[in-house]
Design a protein around this nucleic acid. Structure first.
Lengths: 367, 367
DNA sequence: TTGTAGGCGTTATCAG
DNA sequence: CTGATAACGCCTACAA
């Protein structure tokens, strides 16, 4: 006799067996009514439905997952929940997931490899059907282990060197190249870069784009102008201050992510410098709030929502079609959004064409 | 004979039974080694550990949850993942959860009651041990059902009228009162308010604080100056434009959330108005990025991190100590952070003391 | 110091 | 058209 067979109002959630008893049918029938998985007479259906209502039955997905060996749920591990880039990605992921009948469990690592590891373990132990990961960049063996076991895993934003798995990434080199090339076209020759954490792939790629643009324009790279930040606001601030305190500071700064760009702006403001009059700025990552900055930021925009969509689609394909052998890689294209935060330098060097400027220089006077 | 008893390398995750077989012990022993739940000889422990390594065994939390009727996991439903207020709360929640041995599953409703309902159902079906909820404000019966069943639930940021459950909320009335009172002290008498969605409790409370401050200062409320936004950037923009197009526009605007405040600033900028020279601004919610705005925003700051901490502590208490009868309510206190975005109005009305101003008026000239 | 066995709630394979 | 029954992987009396 079940622990709940006495008719009293229990607080424990009802089970299939309870419903079956109340409806006067077998458990199997209840299950089939719930899942529409075999024919059940209308009359029986009614009885079952009534019992479900009465008992406020709700399926126990835990038991379901155990039995089906499928949780219809996947993980999304982001490296900074406060970064608008990632929240935009979350939206894309959620929309696709919902359309395809999956639930998303969102984890935040704050760029901490230890938390990344814990999240991966958690998700695997909870038997999430797969994971979407923006890696912190530390290569712990656990990832290899998951991949060996053919656990569905898609990296996004960043890839891990030496790890071969599905991935959705941006053409970071091209994005940086465009940004720096644009600065050069406006007459800048001393261009600083505030980059991200060195171990992260995007950082090195964005640095690479910077270098190529300089090279293509015949500008010699100056090590002093290359700074490594921490991908957060304070890092952008500190490294920008470093650049400004150089004996011969740059006339333009390229900042390789959104939060650091805000820090860079704060640094310029704290030094009383005007943008772009004193120093021009180009940032990586566009975001809605940038629109209220004056002057408005020129940015390398990533297709964030599509990022999430593509990553989710790729993961679901892995989960459902199983392991097609070769890892798939999607390369997304950035867009340079030109606004007022660049502009020509005040005193053009003698060795360059001074036919730049235009309406852009009109706007923007800091403070 | 188990489906995996042949020694070949299977891709299926190893189970306790597998480990037991390889170690030459019983499943019970393996379980006890894993959980440290009874004495096991060192020798046996070694054997088990070795088998675990060899098979790369990881516990199946799904089975564990089913058996234990506990998932050590709770839900966190936020109404807007892109809002820095909520991401800050997330941090507080995560930290407490981790300290207390819980995992957090984060859901985003985007202020959509249908998504809220789905998230609640999902969490309950996945047998999350409880839920932390910032309600969209629609009172669907599902919440009542959960509470009747004594499902641990803590509301934060907002409460639902007529629903009695644990909650962590801000003293919104006091916050608004301070903000508006401050504007009055600076000489403003025509003060507009851009509020949030009417159905949300915080919106009405913040409106209430505005009203009380006007009343206390002998200012008659003008319906034209009271506008209802949508809690997002575009709403703040649109309602601010409305205010500016009034025949007799306000000299100051109080905006009741962070995103709308940014929209309001954008609106002022698009009209070429200076802050605070032409229009003063006070916003609700402080956030890191506000620091780069010029003039810097005067805001009503919420203790966001503590919000998350308190909410998580309350929930875990409910989960672990069970149902103490009375719902607990925590009331947090806002702080007015005075910066440059207020200031005195340009042409003081004749009926007021003009002894206000001070150093604050020096800073900040938009554009 | 360790093993046996039953059950958590669901689904799927047989029968009927 | 519907019912028994045996798993899924783990935990935990109870027994030895």
């Amino acid at each position: 006799m079940s622990r709940r067979s006495q008719g009293g109002t229990s607080n424990l959630p009802a089970t299939v067996a309870d419903v079956a008893r109340v409806a006067g049918v077998s458990g199997a029938t209840v299950s089939h009514v719930l899942n529409g998985t075999r024919y059940v007479s209308d009359e029986t259906k009614q009885k079952v439905q009534r019992a479900i209502e009465e008992l406020r039955y709700e399926v126990n997905s835990v038991a379901q997952s155990l039995k089906r060996n499928r949780s219809q749920m996947f993980g999304l591990i982001v490296s900074d929940i406060a970064n608008p880039f990632f929240t935009a990605v979350v939206r894309g992921v959620e929309d696709v997931a919902q359309r395809r009948g999956y639930n998303v469990i969102l984890c935040n690592t704050d760029e901490d490899p230890a938390r990344e590891l814990r999240s991966l373990q958690l998700l695997h132990q909870k038997r999430a059907d797969g994971v979407l990961l923006s890696p912190t960049g530390i290569h712990h063996g656990y990832l290899d282990r998951l991949l060996e076991a053919a656990y569905p895993l898609v990296c996004f934003d960043r890839v891990l060197p030496g790890v071969s798995c599905d991935a959705v990434v941006l053409d970071n080199v091209a994005g940086s190249y465009q940004a720096v090339d644009h600065l050069v076209a406006l007459g800048h020759r001393r261009i600083g870069i505030v980059g991200g954490v060195g171990r992260v792939g995007t950082s090195t790629e964005r640095l690479e784009g910077y270098r190529r643009a300089l090279l293509a324009n015949g500008i010699i790279e100056e090590p002093d102008l290359v700074r490594e930040g921490n991908s957060r606001l304070d890092g952008g601030f500190a490294r920008t201050i470093d650049l400004l305190e150089l004996p011969n500071p740059p006339s333009a700064i390229f900042v390789t992510n959104n939060l650091m760009t805000l820090g860079a702006i704060a640094a310029l403001q704290s030094r009383g410098l005007r943008i772009p009059g004193d120093v021009a700025i180009v940032g990586f990552d566009d975001f809605e709030w940038a629109m209220i900055l004056r002057p408005r930021l020129t940015t390398v925009a990533q297709p964030t929502y599509e990022f999430g969509q593509m990553a989710a689609e790729l993961l679901i394909a892995r989960i459902e079609q199983g392991v097609g052998d070769a890892p798939r890689r999607v390369l997304l294209t950035p867009t340079l959004r030109i606004r007022e935060s660049c502009g020509a330098i005040r005193v053009p060097h003698q060795d360059e064409f001074a036919q730049v400027f235009g309406s852009l220089t009109a706007a923007g006077h800091g403070r």
